[in-house]
Design a binder for these strands. Structure first.
Lengths: 357, 357
DNA sequence: CTGAAAGCGCTAACAA
DNA sequence: TTGTTAGCGCTTTCAG
């Protein structure tokens, strides 16, 4: 049997000629080393018990020599594990990754999963199209990580769909939904962060604050609005919501300009993220207004590269990268133990005090 | 045999109790529909010939009813395809994705691969650690996409290592290496773009130009420097290279400040990317210098969100997203035909003329 | 038009 | 300490 397989392999590489060399299988290694496939398997997987030093060394040498790399498919089929996690990011833009929050989330998730021996399958999904995503149509990952967007109803549809797949689901940055079996929620306290920022803003005794928000509904933004409202309602401060297309700088500038043209100047402008806040500073400066003397400005996120502002931006620091590593750890634990220890994790947020308010 | 498998499945779901329901297999579907697994397979894979309408409808109904999702592992083992491509991004920072170039590259690659039915396995790899990456240690993807960084020698080591794996290799953004079997290079014309920008700068008749570069060596940056040098040497313009840690805004600002403190003011400052150029504008403005009247400033990339500058930045537009989609298409074609049609693709670059030079 | 059967590469239980 | 063997879920001839 060994020699037969070995023959297959040798024939394969000769027959195909110009074709790429066939990857050696565990059988080829076993045959060359004169041991069984079981022995090779044990050596390759570092099983300590029941392998003599000599055999181990021999097999390791043959493995190196033949350039053998275990085929994950065979292993996965046998262990009934995919060794991978899917991340579905719901976003209308094909450049879904351009948002620094997403970027940092993906980096954290990817790094931590890789460390633990898992792969990350990345999918940008247009709203309403989750059902067509290959993560959903096929069984190809051990768990699904979902970053929803859109209004709450749409997000709940996404979550139910993903949950119905019968595999562990980790929802990033959305409020828990009742009776969602086998789901775990991982989020940051955007509401608390916004409230802390609002309290800070209260030192200026503002009457009116404008918040510039994207026209795509993100759960984080809803919570940021809720956090402001919580403080501002109590204090009798009016909150104006100004919507814009955040994917274009000109659109952001235009929206801010239009708002300033048609309203009395607010006491403060907050962006739903730092890019928008920086744009606001520039529009204000361009109109001869001084930040923070005339108008306070603040943002959200504090990611490197988005913080190049003069004056330094006061902003709520997001923890997207840690959201990613946290989610990864939870997934790995869930896959190991068979259950979620907790089903709701919330990372606290802090305000970075720049000089823009 | 069918009923035996079916029994397994039923038992499985009952025995496990609180455990997650076992995913139905093709055998379970076949048993429930009263057909063979071969028939189910054909229906699921949309094979048109030799399936009666009635059978198709029946099987489809059972598939829906049971929530059957084909297990990719079984399929992959049989077809000897992984259905996935690995992307190894060599970068010293764990936040490798934060760079907008990388971000856009990944978005393009991911979207196009997903469209063509492939997954993308994302790996951030620290320099010199490629050999430990699971993409390298295991056979788990059909092709590897490599985005090298570091000095040329280090990059060549990475490329040789990846090429030696015996599977198709696509190198993003590096100069072709001779005798690298089964590799294809996909890049943008950074050198040409830089030269075009340099020509534009010549209208100001500069004597000295400072280029702010990161201390990590990226192939793109080398080419940008080469493009400048090509024009500036001909014209007798001096090019100063100022290195900084580009991952920190303060480091960028400090480096520019130190340079300006210790040298006569240059006629122009170019950043290796737009973030750096924007920082330069702010440092200059803070010193009471006017851009572009006193000093011209320009950058590279023109990605959305990094272009919030006053005045609008003159910059060379990168095509990272298209680099990604192009690489994806090449990979898919290579996997289909068994060979690369070309082994070197170069996307031309254009200058966006803002008002900063 | 449908089904039986072989086998993809690997692991783990069990036998030797 | 090592080897034999039985599949993991699926596709694909080939026979009916």
């Amino acid at each position: 049997m060994h020699s037969c397989r070995q023959l297959d392999y040798e024939l394969g590489s000769e027959k195909r000629g110009c074709q790429m060399k066939t990857q050696p299988t565990i059988h080829a290694v076993a045959a060359r080393a004169g041991v069984s496939t079981a022995t090779v398997s044990k050596v390759v997987n570092g099983v300590e018990t029941g392998i003599s030093k000599a055999t181990r060394l021999l097999v390791e040498a043959v493995v190196r020599d033949m350039g053998y790399r275990p085929n994950r498919i065979g292993r996965n089929l046998r262990t009934r594990r995919h060794g991978a996690v899917g991340l579905a990011i719901i976003d209308p833009s094909p450049r879904f990754l351009a948002d620094p929050f997403t970027t940092n989330l993906v980096a954290g998730l990817s790094n931590q999963l890789n460390t633990d021996g898992f792969g990350l399958l990345l999918h940008g999904v247009r709203p309403g199209r989750l059902k067509d995503c290959s993560l959903v149509r096929n069984s190809e990952v051990d768990a699904i990580c979902l970053n929803p967007s859109g209004d709450r109803e749409e997000r709940i549809r996404s979550m139910r769909l993903a949950s119905g797949l019968g595999q562990p689901l980790i929802v990033i940055q959305d409020q828990p939904v009742a009776d969602l079996p086998n789901a775990c929620f991982v989020r940051q306290d955007d509401r608390g962060g916004a409230a802390a920022l609002a309290e800070l803003l209260m030192h200026r005794d503002p009457k009116r604050v404008a918040m510039i928000v994207a026209d795509v509904a993100w759960p984080a933004v809803e919570n940021r609005i809720a956090g402001f409202t919580q403080v501002f309602e109590r204090e009798g401060v009016q909150l104006d919501l100004v919507a814009c297309d955040e994917t274009s700088n000109t659109a952001i500038n235009d929206a801010i300009t239009r708002y300033l043209d048609s309203h009395d100047a607010p006491d403060a402008i907050v962006g739903q993220n730092d890019q928008i806040a920086i744009a606001a500073i520039q529009v204000l400066t361009g109109r001869g207004l001084s930040v923070p003397d005339d108008i306070a400005v603040s943002g959200f996120n504090a990611f490197p590269f988005t913080g190049v502002a003069v004056p330094p931006l006061t902003t709520v620091c997001s923890r997207a990268y840690e959201l990613g590593t946290t989610a990864a750890r939870i997934i790995v634990e869930r896959l190991g133990t068979g259950r979620f220890a907790e089903t709701d994790y919330m990372l606290p947020l802090e305000v970075f005090e720049g000089r823009s308010i």
